[in-house]
């Protein structure tokens, strides 16, 4: 039922708690929108899923596999785009993807497919360091989509893209569960985009999960709490403000 499940997942540093007792339930075959202000803990959570950061406490399972015992098996099934696009500047876009393809044991056609999906085919022979910001973002996305993995973890995939590019990527992400039978965990600041993309949302603030469920359930809860429900942005801002207010009183 849930392809990614976390149990009291916590990450704390010397002077702060980045993620606190997180219990996420990401349903299989859906697009899950991960929302939160800057510094809420979204990227940290995603990094923990990929083994880039070790959890301080708690546990998680991805497609029935637990970390850290099954780290390599988990990574075989996950395509990711975390923080800024990561690449080798001295190689072309095609060469960058070819390296990933070989590591993942995919056929040569996978590179062209990924480039085509992200609209990079005309620029595949250009050096990655000469790519524009938008192209670098598309290259990162192409790397995540390589081989059509069953799980995609995308950290602000539309960063740096123009409105047309945002529309293209949004449409692509929306179609992925049906087209490629995959689950997408996507974080974004563009709430209007999440509203159009996601089946489920999880709202994070200061490392704590404020809400998890469908957009309909979010509106119902917001109505019950007296928050505005006209659009996701107003609801989101009201929830965050209320939570911040509670934290302030708690001190």
């Amino acid at each position: 039922m849930y392809i990614i499940e976390t149990k009291n997942l916590t990450k704390s540093y010397k002077d702060q708690v980045a993620v606190s007792n997180l219990n996420l339930h990401i349903p299989r075959g859906k697009v899950y929108g991960f929302l939160g202000p800057n510094g809420a803990g979204k990227s940290t959570t995603m990094k923990m899923f990929l083994g880039l950061t070790k959890p301080t406490n708690g546990s998680f399972a991805i497609n029935g596999k637990k970390y850290p015992e099954n780290r390599i098996e988990i990574l075989k099934e996950v395509g990711s785009l975390i923080e800024a696009p990561a690449f080798y500047g001295n190689l072309t876009g095609e060469e960058n993807l070819d390296i990933l393809r070989k590591i993942l044991g995919l056929p040569k056609t996978a590179v062209d497919e990924a480039l085509e999906l992200c609209g990079l085919t005309p620029y595949k022979k250009r050096l990655a360091k000469k790519y524009s910001l938008g192209m670098k973002q598309r290259l990162g996305l192409a790397g995540a989509l390589l081989g059509k993995p069953p799980i995609l973890i995308l950290d602000e995939p539309t960063n740096g893209l123009d409105p047309l590019g945002i529309h293209e990527i949004r449409t692509l992400i929306r179609s992925l569960p049906q087209q490629f039978d995959c689950t997408v965990l996507v974080s974004s600041h563009l709430l209007s985009e999440i509203e159009l993309m996601a089946d489920y949302v999880g709202i994070l603030n200061h490392g704590k999960l404020l809400f998890e469920g469908t957009l309909t359930e979010l509106r119902q809860e917001a109505r019950a709490e007296g928050y505005p429900t006209d659009n996701l942005e107003d609801t989101f801002l009201a929830m965050i403000a209320a939570d911040n207010g509670q934290r302030g009183r708690g001190r």
Binding site: L52, I72, L75, I82, P85, A86, F87, K129, G143
Partner: peptide, 14 residues
Amino acid sequence: ADNGQLKMCSLPIK
């Protein structure tokens, strides 16, 4: 230099 290391760490390679 360009975060290639980060990508390598998120792939099924030790």
